[in-house]
Design a protein around this nucleic acid. Sequence first.
DNA 1: TTATTTTTGTTAACACTGTTAATCTATATT
DNA 2: AATATAGATTAACAGTGTTAACAAAAATAA
Lengths: 201, 201
Amino acid sequence: MGTKERRKREIEEMRLEIIEAAVQLFVTDGYENVSMRKIAQQIDYSATAIYKYFANKEEILIHLLKHGYAIFLTCLKEGVANCKSSHPGERLNALLYAYIDFGLKHPEYYRLIFVENLHQLQKVMTEEDDRVRGFVLLTEMVMAAMNEGVLKKHDAHMAAQSLWASLHGITSLLITFPDFHWHEKEGFIDFQVNAMIKGLT
Amino acid sequence: MGTKERRKREIEEMRLEIIEAAVQLFVTDGYENVSMRKIAQQIDYSATAIYKYFANKEEILIHLLKHGYAIFLTCLKEGVANCKSSHPGERLNALLYAYIDFGLKHPEYYRLIFVENLHQLQKVMTEEDDRVRGFVLLTEMVMAAMNEGVLKKHDAHMAAQSLWASLHGITSLLITFPDFHWHEKEGFIDFQVNAMIKGLT
DNA sequence: TTATTTTTGTTAACACTGTTAATCTATATT
DNA sequence: AATATAGATTAACAGTGTTAACAAAAATAA
């Protein structure tokens, strides 16, 4: 009898309902306003019912992070795909812009993943295919750019880490300190990306 | 009669006692474990007594931030002072290293100021002398380096913002993601600082 | 089908959090 | 000495994540 299968599916449906409610609360009210009681209220259950489907709030956070990280990877891949050129330098450039764009388009997710919960990133990515993980993507494109002579031949891993650092710097500062007297945004981003590339040339 | 003066001093002493307790809790247990009740316990008062001296917890946080920011500025100034050379390029270099060093030596403070509460920075600095504020210091040294031909003559403000972004990137990533497979720290920092400078040359 | 066991959800409760109101006490002013 | 003011305390409110005890419903065994 498939009763066991059905229950398994029902449990998965309930888990989905819970994280959907959590996502909705997160995008509308921000993470600081996602409480177990509010999630429960949204799906007409008691707060403690959730604990039959998730061990604790952290498990729900992990799902929010996975959700956001999937959007992140999509943005990166789209950004590179939208780059017509097949030149490694151009494609790397497109990736760098795509990273910053993700942050500016999804500031709550960027904050949640890269500012507040970076130490959890391992847990978020364990089930992902290695080849689509963000940093691997970046490293591969750095290597390609080096092989084509666009970048000077350093240690590709270190160069990629340096690029990530600079990308994270401008993205997180623009997001977490919007009231600072920043230079006009587009121009500032262009300047930073150019400086980053030039620094490795 | 100086009774009014004495009370004023006593109030200031009590405020000091409170923020000292808060600082101590912060450096030993981390900010997430600084609660009003724990501060009160440490100085043998009831939790609500604090509210006669501080409007709310945020006011105490501001003092923690000021405390940390003072250490930050001291580190920057010491870093530059310890640089024997009078060459603007060398001095700028020393400032960049001093910034990262502050983050690595005082990760809790770096996190509190530049990761979690950057939006409060205005409140932290309002009473400071303009000329010692961190970003102004950086901008001035960038200008000096430009005038000496060490850096290419861009908009100095934008160049300084770009440097800050890259500094914040590497510092915050090293702090908030210590378990990542970073390149050997010293070498990575050297690489990043060199790339930053080269990017603006 | 009936009896038993397991699972699912609810309410009550615990130990916290920041903060406000009411109250008592010690000091200062008239 | 009587009154007003300021200081400190306890009780309480509205939250938080989470655990325990218990009722109802569903799955399994007889």
